[in-house]
Design a protein around this nucleic acid. Structure first.
Length: 543
RNA sequence: GGGCCCGUGGCUCAGCCAGGACAGAGCGCCGGCCUUCUAAGCCGGAAAUCGCGGGUUCAAAUCCCGCCGGGUCCGCCA
């Protein structure tokens, strides 16, 4: 809806309707700074320019009023816009949809199957999964992948660990981590085992069936546990793609031929590519004839590009250089390139995490602790044991997802367990609570909503304008690939509704005023619900 | 050493890409509001050299240059 308002603003402004200078504003529904630009170019007074522009133009469509204030040109929506906004929200069961189309692949999480997901991995999952939900809402046909790095050294070490130490009886991904950690320790004291690791890797790449069985068994166990964790977090993948598949499918061969056909490869003992703009050359084939991660990843991206219009990878910032090299290689090969969302590390107050050294907080541990804490808060309320369980779960998952989501991906995070458990500062439960407040009103009212914009006072009007912005934020996330923007929006909506809640009693109001407010509450509850779902945060009617 | 990212009240963050109207939230602190729709709420207050120093501009948290602090990368690893 807000997108229509922007369109009409552009139309109204005519030759001055440059979208780049039109912004959201706290003084108006939209504002443009175009007069400043023109004033500068022509060396004029910006106020006068703004005045002249406003005199020249007339409001079109949803724009009701245009005024000039100190060089700014402020635009306001008319009543019709408010009416239509509420109408659309109440009647459209897919509010926020943009009707965009195309096939999009989102690859995220893709943690090595050598242990459970830790709190760094789930930053990836939460960004990736939220993007997925928002892209689907926008209308794209989205498929999600978890790329399983089954061919790495760390997998060979894991297999070695399972052989030497067996697996303890615990959640399978945690058991695998034990084996992996023990094997790493063993390797430190017995470096000659290194040969054994290399041998395993070589055999696996040569598709030796006996070795493959061992790898698959270990990986399946780890993945079972990882999937269970992701499920708890409302994170879902359509497919789990194994790195080694691209050797079997011939895509690795294909990519090598393609590189060769461009005369890029320097064939010494190993095959090497020198990349312009990079200090280091890229090795794509080892001396012993086996492939490397980048080779297989190129193959994977070749496959992606054949099947999708848009590809998004959610990667840790430690892959930035690698990502740049990959993009460069794809560019040279004329293969459509992915968009990469890099997120910075989550570290602990005592330093960075390491699965190998057993220094990490697992997602499972975090979920359990946050849930316990949430339970403490609700036990003294009038809920049954089942309800407590359900609400605590919803609040915990919401708190965790929102905590990660609201931070811009490029910001490094230092994880503090005491803060994660502090529900005073949990903003997800604030949104959930706001929703349940709205539900509570609606439960007690049996009247039909009937919105009339003339009855709206200023704060109510502002609330409706905020409601109209939901699709706009879907649009922004899809374009800018910054899901934290949506978290911010949801917070402002919840806050605005809570103001309304205090000042504008619904059930106490009468007749058309009551019906009008019921319409507003209905619309708010609907948008809050859709918004929470887009963030993968459980929606609860009571808490 | 070089590349990239981050540095905003005591704490955690938004805003920076596309420069503009008093730098916004939350936590914590101080003071108010439950005989009225769920107080996990609301209102008010104190608290900020937007890391530092230059520059561009009528206008800089935002753009440019230099520096400082933190992180990260620079494997025939993945």
């Amino acid at each position: 809806m807000f997108l229509n308002l922007i369109k009409d603003a552009i139309k109204s402004l005519g030759e001055y309707g440059d979208e780049k200078f039109i912004k959201e504003s706290e003084y108006a529904d939209l504002a443009t700074t175009i007069a400043f630009k023109i004033a500068k170019e022509k060396n004029l007074n910006s106020k006068e320019v703004a005045n002249e522009i406003v005199d020249k133009i007339t409001p079109i469509g949803y724009i009701g009023k245009i005024e000039s204030v100190g060089g700014y040109i402020n635009l306001f929506a008319n009543y019709e816009f408010l009416e239509d906004t509420i109408d659309v929200i109440l009647s459209d069961n897919n509010y926020g949809a943009l009707g965009l189309s195309g096939n999009v692949l989102i690859e995220h999480t893709s943690a090595n199957p050598d242990g459970p997901l830790h709190i760094g991995h789930i930053r990836n999952s939460i960004i990736g999964d939220t993007l997925t939900r928002i892209f689907i809402k926008a209308g794209f046909n989205v498929r999600t992948h978890y790329y399983i790095n089954d061919m790495g050294r760390q997998m060979a070490i894991t297999v070695l660990g399972v052989e030497k130490f067996g697996l303890p009886d615990k959640k399978p991904d945690h058991a695998i981590a034990d084996a992996y950690i023990s094997a790493n320790k063993l390797l430190e004291s017995e470096p000659e085992l290194e040969k054994k690791v290399e041998e395993l890797m070589l055999k696996y790449e040569k598709l030796d069936e006996e070795t493959a069985k061992k790898f698959r068994s270990a990986i399946d166990k780890a993945m079972d546990g990882i999937k269970e964790t992701m499920k708890k977090l409302n994170v879902e993948h359509d497919e789990f793609v194994w790195e080694s598949d691209f050797i079997r499918s011939g895509y690795v061969e294909k990519i090598l031929k393609l590189l060769d056909s461009k005369n890029l490869i320097k064939k010494e003992k190993a095959w090497i590519i020198e990349l312009e703009g990079f200090d280091k050359e890229v090795v794509i084939r080892r001396e012993n004839g086996t492939s490397l991660y980048v080779t297989r990843d190129l193959a994977y991206h070749l496959w992606k590009s054949e099947n999708f219009d848009r590809m998004i990878n959610v990667w840790g910032a430690d892959h930035k250089l690698y990502g740049a090299q990959l993009l460069k290689l794809l560019e040279i090969l004329g293969i459509k390139r992915p968009e990469i969302v890099f997120f910075e590390f989550v570290s602990l107050p005592e330093g960075r995490m390491s699965t190998r050294r057993g220094k990490f907080i697992s997602a499972d541990e975090l979920i359990d602790k946050v849930k316990e804490e949430a339970k403490k808060i609700i036990t003294n309320r009038e809920f049954s044991a089942e309800e407590i369980e359900r609400i605590a779960e919803a609040v915990a998952i919401g708190a965790i997802r929102f905590d990660f989501l609201k931070v811009a991906p490029e910001k490094p995070m230092i994880f503090d367990m005491s803060k994660a458990l502090d529900f005073e500062r949990q903003t997800a439960s604030y949104i959930q609570y706001t929703y349940s407040r709205a539900c509570s009103i609606l439960r007690k009212s049996d009247e039909e909503p009937e919105f009339s914009s003339e009855l709206c006072e200023k704060p109510e009007r502002e609330l409706v304008i905020l409601l109209s912005k939901m699709p706009f934020y879907v649009y922004r996330v899809v374009n800018e690939v910054r899901p934290n923007l949506f978290a911010e929006y949801m917070l402002s909506l919840a806050s605005k509704f809570n103001e309304f809640y205090r000042d504008y009693p619904v059930l106490k109001a009468e007749d058309e005023l009551r019906r009008n407010r019921i319409a507003i509450v209905s619309a708010v509850s609907k948008v809050l619900k859709i918004g929470l779902e887009l963030m993968g945060i459980p929606v609860i009617e009571k808490m």
